[in-house]
Design a binder for these strands. Structure first.
Lengths: 143, 143
DNA sequence: CATATAAAGGATAAAAATGTCTTTTAATCT
DNA sequence: AGATTAAAAGACATTTTTATCCTTTATATG
């Protein structure tokens, strides 16, 4: 569906959403174990996410990563787009360029609304939505 | 969603379904161009599919690949399973082992029925179903 | 039976994804 | 200012996926 890297990125951001705040930053190396991702790997991904304004960070003593109020409003799609590129998700099941509703490839109807709905969900769901679900017990940690 | 290799495999099988029969076999190298897949690559994939009884082939003069009646009944899921492994498709969006309906990961509900439906479609749809759709003009070639 | 044909199989190469390590830069604290 | 901390950046290593090439085996045909 999407790459390991995107999964890692989402897990990292979600971990920050639950465990970090501006006055309670988390070090890259302390995120790695709880979300089950190699330390240097998650560090790289968080750097990239920071560059795109999806997470916040401060260097030096008492530094680390966190999400501010604005970051919490990030759509899941934004994360996937930064890491994998949105196109990867939207492209035809058989990678046929001309495939669309007018010219559907042989698998097009098999996916049908399904895929469109999924993408809409990624666009409409924010990090804080996911956190809300967790707090309401609708979904669970750990990652 | 699934790998390039699976896409190639599906395209190859579909091409055979439409263009080959036991008395009209197609050479591996002649499949490559119309489905837009490297010649040696599709040859490898067809070998693997043959091993699993998904396509038929004969060596030597007037040999080549084709689908018999039985092959036409292959479920799409079978192809994906042979090439990618079914598990890849079924696994949790965040690759969390314990994730299921009782212990849903934070993305679980986002996919919801959607993914289950898609997998059911792959299981219920056969090559001849896809060919029928093409003949009825519900989906289009080329690949 | 010899020869040509085409898949099968094995080895290798290239590219992309994943993972690790080292150095540099920025912030904090004494 | 100097030392320490931690992210940022860049280089490097490994693994997996994708792609190509060469040899072997099976089949048909003259």
């Amino acid at each position: 569906m999407f790459s390991n890297s995107s999964k890692y990125a989402i897990k990292g951001v979600l971990y920050l959403a639950v465990n970090a705040r501006e006055n309670r930053k988390v070090l890259a190396k302390d995120i790695a174990k709880p979300i089950n991702v190699p330390p240097h790997y998650i560090a790289k991904l968080l750097q990239e996410l920071k560059r795109h304004g999806i997470v916040s960070s401060v260097k030096g003593p008492h530094g680390g990563f966190y999400l501010n109020e604005e970051n919490m409003k990030t759509q899941l799609m934004k994360i996937v787009d930064v890491i994998d590129g949105e196109q990867k998700l939207r492209s035809c099941m058989l990678s046929i360029r001309e495939c669309d509703n007018e010219n559907p490839c042989p698998l097009h109807h098999l996916v049908g609304e399904t895929k469109t709905d999924f993408i809409k969900n990624l666009e409409n769901t924010t990090i804080s939505d996911l956190v809300a679900n967790i707090k309401e017990g609708k979904s669970i940690l750990p990652l």
